[in-house]
Amino acid sequence: MPRPPVYREIIKDIRTAIETGQLKPGERLPTIAQLAEQYGASATPVKFAMRILEESGLIETWQGRGMFVRRPDAEVHVAE
């Protein structure tokens, strides 16, 4: 059986870690480079996974600071 696309694996793993409390609100996520190394992938599918997680409201990205688990009380900014 072929392996599912790596971006789906990343999404599933991070979503599960957030839902189970392994990753807490406000906690910083690994960098794109760290995740790419961890999953044996290029940066492209990692960025895609992070964008999907951000659009779903689970994480937030701060330019120059990193990616964080979104706090429940944080505003969700949707691009127009």
Rank of each mutant, 00 (worst) to 15 (best):
M1R: 12
M1H: 15
P2I: 09
R3T: 06
R3L: 13
P4L: 03
V6R: 04
Y7R: 06
R8E: 09
R8T: 07
I11W: 12
K12I: 05
D13Y: 02
I14F: 02
R15C: 00
A17T: 01
A17Q: 02
A17W: 01
I18G: 00
T20R: 11
T20G: 13
G21F: 02
G21I: 01
Q22R: 09
Q22P: 09
K24P: 06
P25W: 00
G26S: 08
E27C: 06
E27K: 07
R28K: 14
L29M: 00
P30D: 02
P30G: 03
T31S: 12
T31P: 06
T31F: 03
I32T: 13
L35H: 03
E37K: 11
Y39I: 03
G40W: 09
G40T: 06
G40D: 12
G40Y: 10
A43F: 15
T44G: 09
P45C: 10
M50H: 07
M50F: 12
L53Y: 03
E54A: 10
E54H: 12
E55K: 08
E55A: 11
S56M: 14
L58N: 01
E60K: 10
T61M: 02
W62N: 14
G64W: 09
G64L: 09
G64T: 15
G66K: 10
F68S: 08
F68I: 07
V69R: 06
V69M: 10
R70F: 01
R71D: 14
R71M: 13
P72V: 04
E75F: 09
V76L: 11
V76A: 11
V76T: 08
V76F: 05
H77V: 06
A79M: 11
